[in-house]
Design a protein around this nucleic acid. Structure first.
Lengths: 363, 363
DNA sequence: CTGAAAGCGCTAACAT
DNA sequence: ATGTTAGCGCTTTCAG
């Protein structure tokens, strides 16, 4: 058998090339290629011989060579801000992978946590592989997004876009937060606290980043105003969580402790994510109170909700669809099937579980 | 400026090639290459001109071309069994990525959940990209691993190896489970229940897969025997969790309900993972009991532990190191720096939090 | 110290 | 219905 090519590891397993197949089938590489991509006319007899040869040689197309030749890699680079401890991004990644595979693309993933420098290097790596498009699932730094954009690479930003370039995909946080609040109000609550991450300024580049928290907070404020409830001292902001110290004993825990010490303490809490809500549940438990009997809690993201005690009422984000849609937009743009720079907002859904109950208590 | 090459999207952003740089610097591609990889003699003056040209053209090496030419892609394919809802695999992925980047490799990831067919396709994709090595972070099907092995691709299996090929990396579950049990025994517990996933047969291909659960169970059984405690009715097996219905209300919950109904109910529970432990906490809470006052709980994996109420005592797995080490072994083999087929076991560590307390109660 | 030339495996335009 | 040919961008001998 033909073994003239390189075989670095000496495994004797150099994979067959088109040429190998062609020789076995007694045709040229062109014909083999035609058979494999089912284009152009090939006689049935030849076709059969070629397919036999493909099977006999164990031929496997070389994506490297194809990409180089076509100046199209069919690779999408996916930059994930973080995946720990928040499974949200894992689902985004899955959605992205499924969509890409369905369209014949491969996803290159980089977990960049929240580091601008790591993100920059990942962009360079992806461009080195001549990725046809990029997806930033929550960009760490606007500069990186704009850099890629300036190079003409089709790209999408998922949640918390950092700038106005490329496709932007967000969650409609406001209405779902309003729904969560309405749920509490319908249960009879009027004294509802808000435990969230720090709000960033409304202007400047941070405005984009902060809109998730801002929308959730605005919903709380607006509903409270609509029902004519007092809000003094009921909104607590702090650091949602630190990636390297995943624990419920952070801001959610501490803020709730303070709320419970208030003379006129709240009867319900809207937390801006499940991690904060987990901290709230912990504080409630330690204070000897019961949820939802003494106080109701609503989370956001629906990541930990199903594992907490009691099962947490939370707002579920369309994570998988977010990833899939971002990839679809980018591929459509690459293939000239869709316009660039689309802006889309997907709906989230309130999942009612057991951490919310009526007030005043019926017993 | 030279724009003869393809520019499919008409962005005017065709990236510069070695040739472009060479023309600007007034040398040949050979010289540019020499400067870039800092090998061979290049006059300082030429070097400077080349570097200027690199900067001026915005040259970025084409990994596709380099890989094709060298028959070495510097790509490692990473097959992840699942990432939801268990953050364990996310950490494995991070470890793998960090190690790979440090060694100049790129990781291609595929989330294959638990599906053998998806896994097979991912292997094909990776081989299509001529990955230099593969890492199966918990293989779904032995056949896929053996197939890759038969092709001579260096590979590693992380936890739950399905066959005896390639590098195998596991966690020393037994001693850490013994440590967890000793912790409970030291607290005065003698009636300790075990809530785990179904044990698979000890022989046949499933034996490899089942060893994780088997080791954790064996530790429970052995310690119980050592302290002369009765074990009748105290071991409960079931489905740990279903990927698409992430909830604490599964086996852990139900098994604990049954345990709590026993006449001589256990004073502590060893759960074989945090999800089962979350279910146990839920059942305890709903039964009107308190943890650890009435019953202690120990989890495994330390994934949800930090978010549960009360904070769960759990065994932390060296997830990041697992991923990094698997990649290191594979790269070492690729580069001829290490032997193939290594078998390594890493230690896990008991993290004591608040779900475990003394028995009998001191109050 | 630098250059010329071949070729990695594939595709696509152009023959025949 | 099949073949010829010319590269994609890079690395690697081999010359000079």
């Amino acid at each position: 058998m033909n073994r003239k090519a390189t075989d670095p590891r000496g495994t004797g397993a150099r994979s067959a090339t088109l040429k190998d197949v062609a020789e076995v089938a007694g045709v040229t590489t062109t014909t083999v290629a035609r058979v494999l991509k089912e284009s152009g006319y090939v006689a049935d007899a030849t076709k059969a011989r070629v397919l036999d040869a493909v099977a006999a040689t164990g031929y496997r197309p070389n994506s490297l060579a194809r990409s180089l030749r076509q100046s199209r890699s069919h690779v999408i680079g996916h930059l994930l801000k973080s995946t720990v401890p928040n499974p949200f991004y894992v689902e985004v990644a899955r959605g992205a992978e499924e969509e890409a595979r369905a369209r014949g693309y491969t996803i290159l993933t980089a977990n960049v946590q929240h580091d601008a420098e790591t993100e920059r290097r990942a962009v360079e790596t992806f461009l080195g592989w001549r990725a046809d498009g990029l997806v930033f699932s929550t960009p760490a730094d606007a500069a990186n997004v704009e850099y890629a954009q300036s190079l003409g690479v089709p790209l999408a930003q998922v949640e918390r876009p950092r700038s106005l370039v490329g496709h932007r995909l967000v969650v409609r946080n406001y209405p779902s937060a309003v729904a969560a609040m309405r749920h509490l109000v319908d249960l009879g609550h009027r004294r509802i606290a808000y435990v969230g991450a720090e709000l960033l300024p409304e202007t400047g580049p941070a405005a984009l980043y902060g809109y998730v928290e801002r929308e959730r907070f605005d919903a709380w404020r607006d509903v409270m105003r609509d029902i004519g409830a007092a809000t003094d001292g009921l909104a607590r902001f702090g650091e949602a969580y630190t990636i390297d110290q995943p624990t419920a004993q952070g801001h959610g825990y501490q803020a709730t402790q303070m709320l419970l010490r208030m003379a006129d303490r709240p009867t319900a809490i809207l937390a801006s994510n499940d991690i904060l809500a987990a901290g709230a549940l912990q504080a409630i438990h330690e204070a000897g109170l019961r949820c939802p009997d003494d106080i109701s809690v609503v989370g956001f993201d629906d990541t930990l909700a199903g594992f907490l005690t009691p099962l947490l009422t939370s707002v579920r984000l369309p994570a998988r669809r977010l990833g899939a849609t971002a990839v679809r937009m980018v591929i459509d743009e690459i293939e000239g099937k869709g316009p660039p720079g689309q802006h889309l907002a997907l709906d989230a859904e309130l999942v009612v579980r057991r951490s919310t109950g009526p007030f005043p208590l019926r017993r």
